[in-house]
Design a protein around this nucleic acid. Sequence first.
RNA 1: GGCGCCGUGGCCAAGUGGUAAGGCAGAGGACUGCAAAUCCUCUAUCCCCGGUUCGAAUCCGGGCGGCGCCUCCA
Length: 480
Amino acid sequence: MGVRLYNTASRSVQPFSPQDPGRVGIYACGPTLYGPAHIGNFRTFLFYDLVHRYLEWRGYGVHFVMNFTDVDDKTIAAARARGATLADHTLVYERQVVEEADLLGVRRFDVYPRATAYIGPMVALVERLLERGLAYTTPDGSVFFRIAAFPDYGALSGRDPGAARTGERVAGDDYGKEDGRDFALWKGIKEGDREAGAAWSAPWGEGRPGWHLECSAMALSEVGGTVDLHLGGEDLIFPHHEDEIAQSEGATGNPFVRHWLHAKHLRVEGRKMSKSLGNIVGVGTLLAEGVSAAALRHLLLSAHYRTELNFTEEGLKASRRAVDRLLDFDSRLLSHPVRSSGPESGVREASESALASFREALDDDLNIARGIAVLFGFVNRVNGRLDTHAVIGRAERDAACAALASIDEVLGLIEVGRRERRVDKELGDWIEERIEARRRARAAREWMRADAIRDELAAEGIVLEDGPAGTRWKMRQGRH
RNA sequence: GGCGCCGUGGCCAAGUGGUAAGGCAGAGGACUGCAAAUCCUCUAUCCCCGGUUCGAAUCCGGGCGGCGCCUCCA
């Protein structure tokens, strides 16, 4: 059947059909660098990561572009409040978000354009729109898009362009608009912009680009004529993406995007995350508190991207346990005794069917909840086999390892979890030494001494698992 | 007011016409020196009412409840 994805534009799930399967061009709206990213941002970024990883897993050649918005009202305001230049201010948060994304296992995308590096293309875009009569300048040096001249406006979000809002009161900086719905392509220079390094010259006057324009310019420059997949948070459908379509198609005359995907927002303890509620949760804060990155990844990834996800303390705990189960299985599989030949235990069959079911689940509009269920079903089945078969064939074991690794190429849970369990060589050697001492104590049936050693290790976060093939140990992950 | 989404066991969450995946939590059992890990068993008729159908959580109608966007917002 192939990959099927929901398309916001058609409001239905449809086959994913890139123009050129060999090079799928994807543009994702990235963070605005005014402050630290929060878990809501990261739910969206992890959704991007899923799209990225899954399409590559399915064999597509993916060219994935995620921008950084480093100039807009908020970044300028934040930079000015700190007395920093725009460039200095945004660099701080760019570094931070990249670092956090790495910690959560978000694979690096191909290109990260920063808006301020695309002023040229933006100016060119506006010039074309002016030529075509789709834009007009105002006395303060701003340029607005003329929505009345673009009949398709509203198609993505399902709005009637003619209705409502026309006669609305205009905001303070929007003097001169012909129509209340018209949006700014370029904002004429204002007090303080130049000092903050937020002013560029253009044929119609000095100023800075409008937010919507930035994404159009970067998408057209970095992805090309038509974007196969354009991703974003659900809040961007209107007006941001509607405006991107209007500008891009108005200027080029070509379809801008084939397929739109939007991730739903998350809630925190049942409530909307907002400044006024004071419940904005930063990823950096959580990680600093000792929350496991793998657990956080699991939680943010575990619900389908088009359903509301409720971020709770309890959910985080459940996710942590779930990831532990995966990691325990991973290490059990790797250390399970094998022989070169002999009767099959059923592990190979379980591996093959897990891979097929996983693909089926993810092909269906990235149904990750079902995909994760398939994974746990696999873990369960194989654990059962390992219980009843003290030794399995090497080829079977390898097949199971390969299946697990393959699925984790998409989920990245074991990938991130393993990192957190890793210990340095010195600690590792000490652990091995202690385990050997405990082994001797146990052999001598000196339980008190053996348990004292186990407690000693537990105090360092090391958990032991005795099995027929010896004792395995693991580093307990973060507090949550 | 306009557009849209959702309501499944204690919590989270799949399933969208054939009699309920998975994770967490809970109970009992097996294994273990004790643990840990693991396995087995048990725990829901799907917000309510009506309709369509041989058959509905799944379709239709009506309620009730929760939520999103419409303004900066992932």
